[in-house]
Design a protein around this nucleic acid. Sequence first.
DNA 1: ATTAAATTTGCAACACTGTTGCAAGTAAGA
DNA 2: TCTTACTTGCAACAGTGTTGCAAATTTAAT
Lengths: 136, 136
Amino acid sequence: MIETLLKKHSLRITKVRMSILDCFAQSDTALSHSDIELQFSNEFDRVTIYRTLNSFLEKGLLHKVPDDSGIARFALCQHDCNEHQHYDNHVHFKCDKCSKVQCFHDIAIPTIPGLNEYIIHSSQLLVQGVCIECQE
Amino acid sequence: MIETLLKKHSLRITKVRMSILDCFAQSDTALSHSDIELQFSNEFDRVTIYRTLNSFLEKGLLHKVPDDSGIARFALCQHDCNEHQHYDNHVHFKCDKCSKVQCFHDIAIPTIPGLNEYIIHSSQLLVQGVCIECQE
DNA sequence: ATTAAATTTGCAACACTGTTGCAAGTAAGA
DNA sequence: TCTTACTTGCAACAGTGTTGCAAATTTAAT
């Protein structure tokens, strides 16, 4: 439940946070600031939306999804992330036709040989192509 | 040679293009617009730099390096890319300390099982951590 | 070397994304 | 209920990237 989720991450329960978190819970794709703003522009200030996304990110409710376009997209964390640790090393798929970005939480990224001397914190794999819906 | 490279990709030989392409040839890390602008701000207009980067991208001289920060970085293509085809499915490493991004052209990205129904155009792996220089 | 056509450059202006400071408003615990 | 700490909205700003247009430059053809 959404309220519990906020409390668990030590965030106060407010209208903006409930609405935006609900948005992510409903969506099966990663959402950008502008996606959110489209829905709530006459309800909440854009700065508030930015700040909400940032606190969700910081507290481990959301993770950032990389993208060649430059705009930041976010998706719900599936594991127990918190402000100290993020576990979001999974595969992302971006459709070149509809531009939607999906997370594949179940597909682990294989270990890459050849980076032995580097200390590795995280790996993110972005696959681009055509999603199932856009093939039809 | 730089002039040959421009001609090969059907780009006219101009001062901006020579200078910027040379910059990339010298550098072992990916460069952003602002990296370039720092060097040439009193010589070339920022719009011209943006346009130069875009034509290099389009003609297959450079590829875009993904990054969670949102700013676009570019690096030289190693294979024979052109305006129709890009072969830049390799590993990128970003150092969390110095923020430099390196390409590992030699490390191929393993095939990911579980995306069978998707048409895949490209895969980019971004590994973050601490580079060798920053460990010392 | 001259010329003509096409491309490139610089400038001004603009749009979008994201951040900061501050005063007013709200949530949560005593 | 009251107090404290956090959150929100507003205004202003900074950075990144794009577009239109006139002037300059490259290129290829004479």
